[in-house]
Design a protein around this nucleic acid. Structure first.
Length: 284
DNA sequence: AAAATCTCCAACCGCAGGAGT
DNA sequence: AACTCCTGCGGTTGGAGATTT
């Protein structure tokens, strides 16, 4: 017995969204909140699949989205995070507020990948393309290797020595700057990316938590401690009945300071916790 | 100016996994 | 335990607009 389709495909629109559809979706979510994507189209009077609505909202209509070109800092951060996490776009997106996983993925595929290739770097391994394979490389490139192993056993890093020189472009008769790169293999991590990793509610979760607590009569967004079954009344401050929180004086609304003060960090590398959630890695 | 080609990105698809029953 | 429902993720595609020939 297979799964039922997510929607009646015969009666749904596909392709680009119209202004009217956008308006309907925005006004519906403004008054009812996110969630219940399956029933949302019917309730909002949209002839769209729920999945399509969710994507449209998350990737395009959400008010907190940062539009426009990626900055050099963002560019740099994406490369570093990708070297650590691979194609975990949603995880990378949590470190770039206002950017969506889809946006980052597109940016990677259209810009960054090409940029790295131009510099002679394999965008998958982040190593020089002509670097001879070592036994370590081949074991590291195995697809079965998960992100945690990749982070904990992160091997030799490339030290980029960047210099600029002037080179005449003979074809156009111009003098242009040309980047030069040399690489040496050094045993270190990204120097300017502090990887003190902690477990904490992801950024989006924190925001979301403050805005919408109940979805369709079901609590879909519990705090990280609750999701892990770690709610103990001290660290947990969410409203979920399953948290078994005893603190009756708990406030029913959140302020940003409440959220930041409720963020619980677990010693990641010390592995004080046996539960790991990559969606909430916090890099300080 | 028109055709061909390329680039970019919004949107789609299939699948995995958590949660409820 | 088995099943369904629902959400979210990552890979891929289609087509509009830009660029080149």
């Amino acid at each position: 017995m297979g799964r039922s389709p997510c929607c009646e495909k015969d009666h749904t629109n596909k392709g680009a969204w119209t202004k009217e559809e956008d308006d309907k979706l925005i006004s519906y979510i403004k008054s009812h909140g996110e969630g219940c994507w399956r029933s949302l189209p019917r309730s909002a009077g949209l002839l769209r699949c729920g999945k399509s609505c969710r994507l449209r909202w998350i990737n395009y209509l959400r008010p907190d989205l940062k539009r426009g070109n990626f900055t050099l800092d963002e560019d740099d951060l994406i490369i570093k995070l990708h070297s650590l996490l691979g194609n975990k776009w949603s995880l990378i997106a949590t470190r770039l507020p206002g950017r969506t996983d889809n946006e980052i993925k597109n940016y990677w595929n259209t810009h960054v990948k090409r940029k790295l290739l131009r510099r002679g770097i394999d965008p998958t391994t982040h190593r020089p393309i002509n670097e001879t394979k070592t036994p370590r490389d081949s074991s590291e490139s195995r697809e079965t290797e998960d992100s945690l192993v990749r982070i904990l056993s992160f091997g030799p890093q490339l030290e980029k020595k960047e210099s600029f020189g002037q080179e005449r472009n003979h074809q156009k008769g111009l003098v242009c700057k040309k980047e030069r790169f040399e690489y040496s293999v050094v045993e270190e991590r990204c120097l300017d990316l502090n990887l003190e990793l902690k477990i904490s509610p992801p950024w989006q979760d924190q925001q979301h938590h403050a805005e919408t607590k109940l979805w369709c009569g079901r609590e879909r967004h519990r705090c990280t401690a609750c999701r892990f079954g770690l709610g103990n009344g001290k660290e947990c401050s969410c409203d979920n009945a399953k948290c078994q929180i005893e603190d009756s004086s708990r406030s029913s609304s959140y302020s940003s300071s409440d959220i930041s003060s409720s963020v619980v960090g677990y010693d990641f590398l010390g592995l004080n916790t046996s539960v790991l959630d990559f969606s909430s890695l916090e890099m300080n």
